[in-house]
Every structure is written in C-alpha cells, then in structure tokens.
Amino acid sequence: MPRHLSSSLRMATLALLWGSGFFWIKLALNHGLSPAQITITRCALGTLVLLALARRAGQRLPRNRSIWGHLAIAALFCNAIPFALFGIGEQTVDSGIAGVLNATTPLWSLLIGALLGTDRNLHPLRLTGLALGFAGTLLIFAPWHRSGLLTWSALSLLGAAASYAVAFAYMARKLTANKAPMATSAAQLLAATAWTTLALPTAGPLHPDATALLAVTVLGTLGTGVTFYLNYRLIADEGPTSAATVGYLLPVVSVALGALVLGEHVGLRVIAGMAVVLTGVALTRTPTPTCRHPRSDGRGRAGTSNARIRTDQEKTAPL
C-alpha cells in the first residue's frame, strides 16, 4: 500500500475510534450503566491494553515515587475528571454536541496560558481564534433561546475540556521525556483507575444489558487503549502535524454517528457553531513570526510523559 494511503487510513481509523467515544458513552448510558461505572471500566480496560502493549515493547512501569506522584495528578485531571464529566454531561446532552465541546480544549489551554502568563505568544490572530472559539460555543448553547443547551450537563462537558487543558499545562511542567511512553501511559491510566474507584459508592446498582457491556468494552479497549497506540505510531511515522489533523475530525465523527445511529437532531445553529469553534481552534494554532514552532494547546486521551507524544495529544485533545 502506498505510504500516503497507509497514513490516511491510519488517520481515518484513529479519528473514527476517538470520535466514536462519545457515541459509546451515550450508548452505555442509555442501556443501564452510570457515569461512574463507565469511567471506572473504561480506565481499567484501557490500562490492561496499554500494559499489554508496554510488555510487548519491553517497557516497564516507572519505579520512581516522584514520577508516580506527578502521574497521579495528571491522571486526575487528564483522565478521571474529564472521563467522569463526559459521562455526566451526556446523560442529557447529545453525543454529537459532546464531541464538539471537547474540541474547545485548545481554547482553554490558550486562555489558561494567557491568565497565568505562561503563554507569551499572544498574537492578535491567536486571540481572534480564542474569541471565535468561545463565540462558537455560545452559538451552540444559545442561552437566549428557551430551547438552548446551556444546562449543568452542558457545562460539565466544558469542564471536561478545561480539565484536559489543566492536565496538559501540568504535564508540560512536571513530566519529562523518557524511553518508556507506553508503560508511563499505562501507569497514568492505572492511577486514574485508582482515582475512579473512589466513586464506587456513588456508582449505583449494575443494570447493564449486552449493548451496554459491548459499548463500554469498545470504549475502554479501542477508544482508550488502542487509540493511544495508533496516535503514538502516527506521530512516529508522520510527525505531530499530521497527527494533529485528527483533532479536527473528532467532532465531525461524533456528530455524524449521533445523527445517523442515535437519531440525534443536528440543527443549522449547531453546525454553524461547530464550524466557528473549529475555525477558532485553527487560528489559535496558526504559526506566527514570534513562534516558529507554536506551542500545542489541547487533549489527550490516555496521557503520556513522552514529550513528543504529549505535544500531539495537546493538539488533538482526544477524548
């Protein structure tokens, strides 16, 4: 297979698996699982996949206590909190909308960097992108309409995107490159599993059917574990710029699956809002004369301490 076709196929597969995560969450919620149950299972299954991949690659879990401490904090903000908030938010918000709101992670990263003074590359074009991105979010919510989407569930979805941004800022400062990205990512998801087990008392009784079990299994193994591996391979083979393109496809996948499979209504206002959000995100990543290699802002899904992989995760802001 030609190289460009292989790369395109890998990108399409990665976008489909990541973008479908919102669909699987919605399906699991509709068939008997609570947000806490979905989050715990997802983290556990993702951990198992990454542990298997790490062992295959000959990588071992970190042994340094300080690294485990940093991974525990990263796991809280990059996995446990956003995974739970997506489950909570999708109880009443469509999966397609959830995918669009996830794309706001780079906007939160830029805003946090601007407020803390850690991002000095506040070029007018990036600030315009920031304003456009949040304007698009407001257009999606439409709080001026009685049928608007501005609810606590919707705000929890924005909270998930903001949590990713906090995690990436922390990871950029505290987690440095190492030679075992698979194992380190497995360790982070293992810590996230430990965090989420604290929510077991609130998980409620189990009433899943076969559809819910299938959905959460696919979400944990493919949507969390395998996607990290594919992302890692894409960055290694094609570079972070190509991999970052996947981030623009995630909302498209989530909206398409929600509409075609779950029958979710997609109005013109939501489509327009999505277009404005993605335009804003694109502008925040536009290279400027003061920064030849712009800092990435945004999600990642399983998390890693490998600097090159983390950079792309920040760009794509995977679920």
Score class of each variant (00 low, 15 high):
G247I: 03
I38K: 01
A259T: 11
T217E: 08
L14Y: 12
L262E: 04
V246H: 08
L5V: 12
R63G: 12
I25Y: 13
T47I: 06
N121G: 09
L61W: 12
A212K: 07
R120Y: 07
R285K: 09
L222H: 05
L278F: 03
T227W: 06
T202H: 09
C43R: 01
S7K: 12
L283Q: 14
I25N: 09
A191W: 00
G247W: 06
L110E: 03
T290F: 07
L107S: 04
G303W: 00
R3K: 15
L230Q: 13
A302P: 15
Y164P: 02
L101C: 07
F141C: 13
L16W: 04
A194L: 15
V253D: 00
L17T: 05
H293M: 14
A302K: 11
S242P: 05
I88N: 00
P82D: 09
S7A: 14
A210R: 10
Q313H: 09
T311P: 02
H207G: 08
K179L: 10
T241W: 15
V255T: 10
L198D: 06
T118F: 08
C291L: 11
S147D: 13
L230T: 14
F23Q: 05
P124W: 15
G300V: 08
G113T: 01
F86A: 02
F134C: 04
A103G: 13
H145Q: 13
A187Y: 00
L5T: 14
H265D: 11
A80I: 05
G21C: 07
A75E: 01
V166C: 03
G117S: 04
P201L: 02
N306Y: 10
K174V: 01
A12M: 10
T128I: 10
T221Y: 06
P181A: 05
L257A: 15
L249Q: 05
V277G: 02
G204C: 04
V246L: 13
G19E: 10
N121E: 11
Q37H: 11
C291M: 08
L110P: 05
G136S: 12
T47V: 12
Y164Q: 00
L249T: 15
T137S: 12
L260N: 07
H31K: 15
L16H: 02
T304K: 00
Q91D: 03
L219W: 03
A282P: 05
P208N: 15
I81F: 03
G19R: 07
S305Q: 02
A57S: 11
L139V: 10
L213I: 13
A54M: 14
L17I: 14
A54H: 13
S20K: 12
G69D: 14
A236M: 11
R126C: 06
G136E: 10
